[in-house]
Nucleic acid binder design. Structure first.
Lengths: 321, 321
DNA sequence: CGGACCATCTGACTTAAGTCAGAAACTATT
DNA sequence: AATAGTTTCTGACTTAAGTCAGATGGTCCG
């Protein structure tokens, strides 16, 4: 069961963009580059070379293996070692051998190191706070623009994973999903009347709940609900209800839309369904969610007859796996 | 007549921002910082150290004084000189003495240097084009977010200047202004019926046209229209029409709103009006432009009786200087 | 046990970037 | 004409960052 799907590859030869748009993007680049130093100046201002600060930050408050931190920063082993020695000389970290493999070493911040780490965090928070204050009344709007760009610029770091449908992240996504349906449906939306699949149906071994995360923030989800009895192994031929799953609660945060994320989520959901022995998937949706229906059609779903009494559902699709 | 006004100073002690907002901003910072290298990678990829590339870029295709380029990059004179020597050794620039001051020197790209400069530009454009292509159908939305953030991040580099009301930049601003009025007024907007002041009235010595620019792009304007006869010098006491100016065509690009720019423009317009000997300003506006009317009141304008037959005007203000 | 393999470390070296003091060439001022 | 002040340049030095070739001490497997 793959835990992630590569983002869609762009078309082979991109046509040159509009010169005006190029100028706009380059203007942003200049502004962002000249702001970049200011943006995360937390590494500076504590009288330590950038490399050492980055290493301390890469180790995290609980420490990590030397090799892992080195790989994360993309450093040469010699350089990494030297940075660790300086941090050690300053009394900020201590290194111990790995309990299971004497070759590997673990670098862990000391109390002083953790204090220093916290100081970086405070500096960074204070800096962010000051920036937001400077934005004044434009702040909500600018933060929304930042969310949007952060997702787009880091689209290849959006990771998909299986999560528990009752985890806080999953619940937050679903709450955002319900709130959006309530806004978009002319008649509003009430969860209770829509036949919400219980959490157990979206948990192994029956199904799964998929979460898309970017830099620690949940920005999308998809539920795969399986039937009550686990499908029997090996019995093929008949296409019974025991081998049909249902896709529910597909939601993408506004700032992550248009980046091909729902396609990645749906595609992973199909893989997971196949891994659970399902042979067919179905789903219902509302006519107001036009983008969703268009995507389903593009991904090979066929429109079928109504299969439930969900009052909000108007369109029904299925797809053989 | 000051050419620029400092941006408004933020309130003394900013209260700490919402932790969620801090996290959002820091997420953007991380994304932008890690994208920053990629964002303007044009300096790399041509086998030259960053410093030399930056210097070549700072000189521009037509060359410049050594001191000017050095100040722009904020470099030590020794370092700057050494960078120039390496560029000279590579045959990319040549230096000549300043025609009027033998101490100063002018560094000018050679044909090869200009070709190199153009290569950087092409690389940068190609990179921007590829980024836009990667954005796919989300591009228009993302570019708008970039415009918004570029203005906000570089707000202190938004410069005001006096421009000709018939320059292309001024015309572009006014066209955008008219288009917006047409969208916002229930009845639409037609320039011809609104008593457009002729260009001559917004040009010295009668008046002025003010333009706000960010990184070469016009993002706002304000017209100061003076009466036909230049005000007579010295004759004080009476407050005749010959000493009353009118503010027209105040417009701020959507991406630059909420940054205190209209206040800066209006304040400069008042200074310019005083410099032209005006003792009173007046303006008309529409009730649909609620933000505008609120700003006028905050800046000390008083509502007065209708003074023209502009069918779009509903509110009238004046301000003694 | 020996050898292949591995993670980490050390020492020697390179490059980019920048600082600082002062020299050289020039202009402006008294 | 002497002097003070510019602008640019040169040489000597420093620091940060990174590369590379082994050395060291460990694991794993036949």
């Amino acid at each position: 069961m793959p835990q992630d799907h590569a983002p869609e590859t762009p078309p082979a030869d991109p046509p040159p963009a509009d010169p005006g748009d190029i100028a706009r993007l380059r203007r942003f680049n200049r502004a962002a580059t000249s702001a970049a130093g200011v943006l995360d100046a937390s590494f500076l201002g504590r009288g330590r070379p950038l490399g050492e600060s980055r290493m301390l930050h890469a180790l995290g408050p609980d420490g990590d293996e030397v090799g892992a931190a080195r790989a994360r920063l993309g450093l040469d082993s010699g350089l990494a070692s030297r940075l660790l020695r300086s941090l050690e000389a300053e009394g900020l970290i201590e290194t111990v051998r790995h309990p299971e493999d004497g070759r590997r070493r673990i670098a862990r911040p000391t109390a002083r190191g953790r204090a220093e780490f916290a100081a970086y965090e405070r500096l960074s928070d204070a800096h962010a706070s000051a920036t937001i204050a400077r934005f004044g009344r434009a702040a909500p709007d600018l933060l929304a623009a930042m969310d949007r760009l952060a997702c787009a610029l880091g689209a290849d770091r959006i990771a998909l994973r299986v999560a528990d449908p009752e985890s806080p992240e999953a619940k937050a996504c679903m709450a955002a999903y319900y709130a959006e349906l309530d806004r978009r449906f002319a008649s509003g939306f009430d969860v209770d009347s829509s036949g919400d699949p219980e959490a157990a149906s979206m948990r192994a071994p029956r199904g799964a709940f998929l979460l898309a995360e970017f830099d620690g923030a949940a920005i999308g989800c998809a539920g795969l609900a399986g039937p009550e009895a686990a499908p029997s192994e090996g019995g093929d031929g008949e296409q019974d209800a025991g081998r049909t799953g249902e896709i529910k609660r597909v939601w993408i945060a506004p700032q992550a839309r248009g980046l091909g994320l729902s396609r990645r989520l749906m595609s992973l959901a199909e893989d997971v369904a196949r891994g659970l022995g399902m042979t067919r998937l179905r789903l219902d949706t509302n006519g107001a969610l036009t983008e969703a229906a268009a995507l389903y059609r593009r991904m090979g779903w066929r429109e079928i007859e109504r299969y439930n009494d969900n009052p909000y559902a108007e369109l029904f699709f299925d797809k053989p796996l």
